[in-house]
Design a protein around this nucleic acid. Structure first.
Length: 642
RNA sequence: GGCGACGUAGCUCAGUUGGUCAGAGCAUGCGGCUCAUAUCCGCAGAGUCCGGGGUUCAAGUCCCUGCGUCGCUACCA
């Protein structure tokens, strides 16, 4: 038997926070893809796990007075416990602290090091000891660390670097010649556009003086490897690279599922790492968008971080899985609100599918005491009663869409068939046929086709709603054993329902959710979200750190080679400051001269386009329009503004 | 500022290579049925397919430009 094989992964989730909606989506999407491929006859392997090394974990652990390992154990446990709640059937759960993983990371590092693609180099940078990290100049706030408010020190450090630039052309070519390598295609474009600029080499180490919570480099005891190098290797360490059966079986028939924020590591570092280590390149990357919640990005300060366990508890696992897969166009962002999920559940699940199931089975019960009758071939042909052609169409559209991870379309194809069945009932009006004994064969044919249709639907929804699939099949006397399912091939054959068997009166598949109740129990929050999102709350003391003063622009001139910056001399009373302001698009030097402005007077000076800037003007911006702040009456320069 | 994506009915969005492409779902209104979870079925809305140019016998669908939204990136103080 030469079965086709495919390997699906989620990213390994960083253990610095508990799982949220986004994690749940990625995992469910990969689970749906895996289940679908199983239906299509593939042998599959599905991997997820946690990423547990690095600075942040050490810091978080210290805060809780615990060890990094213990801290990681706790959060990793949360991710592991989430899986059964979401009904995710992973084959393995990897942790970057697993000894076997660590061994393989070292193996790969050695390989690349030996081939000469890792080199040692030192560099100077601005280092904040509080944060234990380097900052780029532009990341600083007023020349100070944004977290600690201290001025970072210039220090020299040596590290190991991975020669990524060497493989840039190769990668561009690889992406172009493998159109499915990055999907959907907007992300392929994004990566290619990024690759137009020269790739910088990747720093892959940290000295142990700064960080010990990591994997020691095999070629230098004094260093640990850093972030992505450790994390990405999980995809093959979990398969026991290089000699494991799993690796031989599944690599490189791999599709990685990731959210759009980590396409660079996966679309650039990872293939180059594989190439440099002489390992085959994985088949492809499936990139999805973000879930916004109530119209805003999920964030702690807004308080809309959504807990998948809580949501599942309210709506049920299958409904939650259905909603996520149906609502999000794979690749694009989507919005999560109580209204949208309730609307999906009520109209798609309760009204369309649930009610169809209920009405068909109860008619069968009412007219035939639950016994499954067969179709009358003659009448079926005469009146074109067979639903088989529509079923074939549905299976076909479903399969095509699911193959491309276009889950929303795959589901759409099933629901189109559901809609056809509802119309079919209306058209043939079984309740009318039931009044006339002569129409009995007609009635039997209609009901039979409907039951068959439900059988098909029960099979097709399996990847998305495994529990409901099983429930329906049980009701239809078509259930398989535990954890078993019908393959596409098996469900495709029309006319499989067991004639003569007795089908019970149906139970409700999906109860409707009373929207009135929700409205009354939930205070209406119609507040429009801020755009951009509101920053973190500060105290009056925080604000008091900013020294605002009144000023008057006494001189203004353009800066060469800059279409945005003006060089201003601003009178602050006690002294005249030079301020470089990015207002040239909206103000000419003539216009701005003489204006009263508000100046941030205690801002650390910086150089912009070679000119010293000793402050900053307050202004409002909307797109490209800039409007300076000012006063409605005359005021002396140098006054404090509060 | 640079690069890129997008802008289609009240809402969420489909619309492949230019010619039944002006659509679906939800919401709304009216009508029908009663098997069903007050569910289902039918009909209606008509929307300058963001504005303006252009290519073409023919353009949401191609080109240019303006505006708007979003992403990446930068000299954003």
């Amino acid at each position: 038997m030469n079965t086709k094989k495919v390997f699906f992964t989620t990213p390994i989730y960083y253990v610095n926070a508990k799982p949220h909606l986004g994690h749940a989506y990625t995992s469910i999407a990969a689970d749906v893809a895996t289940r679908f491929k199983k239906m299509a006859g593939f042998e599959t392997f599905f991997l997820t796990g946690t990423d547990e090394h690095g600075d942040k974990i050490v810091q978080a652990a210290e805060k809780q007075n615990t060890t990094p390992k213990e801290y990681a154990d706790n959060i990793s446990r949360l991710f592991q416990d989430l899986l059964p709640v979401l009904n995710i059937e992973n084959n393995f759960f990897i942790r970057t602290t697993d000894p076997s993983h660590i061994k393989i990371v070292k193996n790969i590092l050695s390989k690349i090091h030996e081939s000469g693609d890792i080199y040692f180099s030192s560099y100077e940078g601005l280092y904040c000891f509080g944060c234990e990290r380097f900052y780029q100049e532009r990341e600083l706030v007023g020349g100070k660390c944004p977290d600690h408010g201290t001025v970072p020190e210039v220090i020299k450090e040596s590290n190991y670097f991975f020669k990524m630039g060497k493989y840039q052309e190769w990668l561009i070519n690889h992406i172009k010649t493998n159109p499915d390598f990055i999907r959907p295609k907007q992300y392929k474009k994004e990566i290619l556009s990024f690759l137009k600029e020269p790739l910088e080499d990747l720093c892959i180490s940290r000295p142990k003086s700064r960080l010990t919570w990591g994997i020691t480099l095999p070629f230098d005891e004094e260093y640990v490897t850093y972030v992505w190098f450790d994390a990405l290797v999980n995809y093959i360490s979990a398969l026991s690279f290089p000699d494991g059966e799993l690796f031989k079986k599944f690599w490189p028939n791999t599709r990685h599922f990731v959210a759009k924020d980590i396409i660079k590591p996966h679309g650039i570092y990872w293939p180059i790492m594989l190439k440099a280590a002489g390992i085959k390149i994985y088949n492809g990357l499936n990139v999805h968008g973000f879930w916004n919640v109530k119209g805003s990005k999920m964030s702690k300060s807004i308080g809309n971080v959504t807990d998948p366990i809580e949501v599942t508890g309210i709506y049920g696992t299958d409904a939650f899985r259905y909603f996520l897969m149906r609502e999000m166009v794979f690749g694009l962002d989507a919005n999560f609100t109580r209204e949208t999920i309730v609307s999906r559940i009520n109209s798609d699940l309760a009204n369309d599918l649930g009610n169809l199931f209920s009405r068909v089975l109860s008619m069968n019960h009412r007219y035939f005491k639950g016994e499954v009758k067969g179709p009358d071939k003659k009448i079926q042909e005469e009146k074109m009663l067979s639903l088989e052609p529509d079923a074939v169409t549905a299976i076909d559209a479903f399969t095509k869409a699911m193959d491309l991870c276009e889950f929303h379309r795959g589901i759409g194809a099933i629901w189109q068939f559901v809609s056809i069945m509802n119309k079919y009932i209306d058209k043939n009006a079984p309740w009318v046929l039931a009044k006339d004994d002569a129409e009995k064969p007609y009635l039997e044919t209609v009901i039979y086709n409907l039951i068959e249709g439900l059988r098909l639907v029960s099979g097709l929804i399996y990847p998305v709603m495994p529990e409901t699939s099983c429930k329906m099949q049980k009701a239809l006397n078509m259930e398989k054993g535990n954890n078993e399912f019908y393959t596409l091939k098996e469900i495709s054959q029309w006319g499989q329902i067991k004639k003569g068997s007795i089908i019970e009166n149906p139970k409700i598949l999906f109860p409707r959710i009373d929207t009135d109740k929700i409205k009354s129990s939930e205070p209406v929050k119609l507040a429009k979200p801020f755009k951009p999102a509101l920053k973190e709350e500060i105290t009056i003391d925080d604000f008091a750190k900013v020294d605002l003063r009144t000023g008057i622009v006494i001189k203004a001139e353009k800066i060469k080679n800059s279409n945005k910056l003006l060089k201003l001399q601003v009178d602050l009373g006690a002294e005249t400051r030079q301020v470089i302001a990015g207002v040239a698009k909206s103000y000419t030097p003539e216009e701005i001269t003489g204006k009263q402005v508000i100046v941030v007077a205690n801002l650390k000076e910086v150089k912009l386009m070679g000119e010293i800037s000793q402050g900053m003007l307050l202004a409002a911006t909307h797109t490209k329009k800039i409007v300076l702040s000012g006063f409605d009456k005359e005021i002396m320069p140098g006054n404090p503004v509060k």
